[in-house]
Design a binder for these strands. Structure first.
Length: 303
DNA sequence: TAAGATAAGAGGGACAT
DNA sequence: ATGTCAGTCTTATCTTA
């Protein structure tokens, strides 16, 4: 299935880039960074038929015709029940995808909806390269967008904003740490517009989202800076304590994670400026200071 | 120069009108 | 529907060590 190329990941620098023969994309097994997709298809099918009968493989038909017709849709819903890393899907995910495939065939019959969908998926395709998420997340995003179409939520709103919101929702749902800002920058849509659409999706589709895990945020920030494992662990400990005391309720998880990390750096004598961390986390220094104040006051009592 | 403080403003949720 | 309120986060500017 996946073969190890041993090349360095552009994001985290680890020698962990793998390529997926099914989807044709290269991804980092450590941080999930995806480089490219849409390489050549059609290999597996042809090969298997050749082996079977030894005859001319022409009967396989045109392996690329589906791809062309669907404009990348077939990438979103491939016929194998595997996720991006080649592992079998969970049963719940499997049924989700099954439903999606049904939808897929249906949507081709409904022209007006299909037009909108194509445009949206085209946008999603562009987004994918900029925010680099796994194919798994893309599927989810496409699925969410379809449901929003079905509920007529897109009417009166821009497709870009809605597809961006769908993608954000998919990231949230799959615990892929991407901020609204990340996606806003990639989509060239204002943050607040995406946020509005996301809330709409969340409310109307009754999506059950796991709370953003600040621990993952720490991992993400640390990977941008040179943070030692020890410092990271300390930050996580601080964060856990804050969560237990409900000190974290209603706060931006990124800001919280950034501050915990900053506190940890100070405690461990690592010289890092608030500015560095703020930049890596995508929050302002002021936010770090505010959270830092709270974390510190609480942490001292527990030292 | 980095860190802390302060003020003004945006955006949205809860709740009442 | 519209308005108010408390709370959060951001931007900008100034002060402090």
């Amino acid at each position: 299935m996946s073969s190890n190329h041993g090349t360095n990941c552009p994001r985290c620098g680890k020698k962990s880039m793998l390529s997926d023969d099914v989807t044709g994309e290269q991804f980092c097994s450590k941080c999930g960074f995806v480089i490219s997709e849409k390489s050549e298809e059609s290999g597996p099918e042809w090969r298997s038929f050749q082996k079977d009968s030894g005859s001319n493989p022409a009967r396989a038909g045109a392996p690329s015709s589906l791809t062309i017709h669907d404009m990348g849709l077939s990438t979103v819903i491939n016929p194998l029940n595997k996720d991006a890393s080649g592992k079998p899907l969970s049963t719940s995910m499997k049924s989700t995808i099954e439903r999606l495939r049904t939808w897929d065939s249906r949507s081709q019959a409904h022209e007006p909806v299909d037009r909108n969908l194509r445009q949206a998926l085209g946008e999603l395709n562009k987004l994918k390269d900029k925010v680099s998420v796994s194919a798994n997340v893309l599927e989810k995003a496409a699925y969410i967008y379809r449901k929003s179409l079905e509920k007529k939520l897109v009417r009166g709103r821009s497709i870009s904003a809605m597809i961006a919101a769908s993608l954000y929702a998919a990231c949230r749902d799959t615990q892929t740490p991407r901020t609204l800002k990340d996606i806003a920058d990639a989509a060239n849509v204002k943050r607040k517009d995406i946020a509005r659409c996301y809330r709409l999706l969340h409310h109307e589709l009754e999506l059950k989202m796991p709370v953003v895990d600040s621990v993952q945020c720490i991992a993400r920030i640390s990977s941008k800076l040179k943070i030692t494992e020890k410092t990271k662990r300390y930050a996580i400990k601080v964060l856990k304590e804050a969560q237990e005391r409900k000190e974290s309720a209603g706060k931006d998880p990124m800001g919280l994670a950034a501050s915990a990390l900053y506190l940890s750096c100070v405690k461990n004598g690592v010289s890092v400026t608030q500015r560095d961390i703020a930049e890596a986390a995508g929050v302002t220094e002021v936010t770090i200071r505010n959270r830092y104040k709270g974390l510190k006051a609480e942490h001292i009592t527990n030292d």
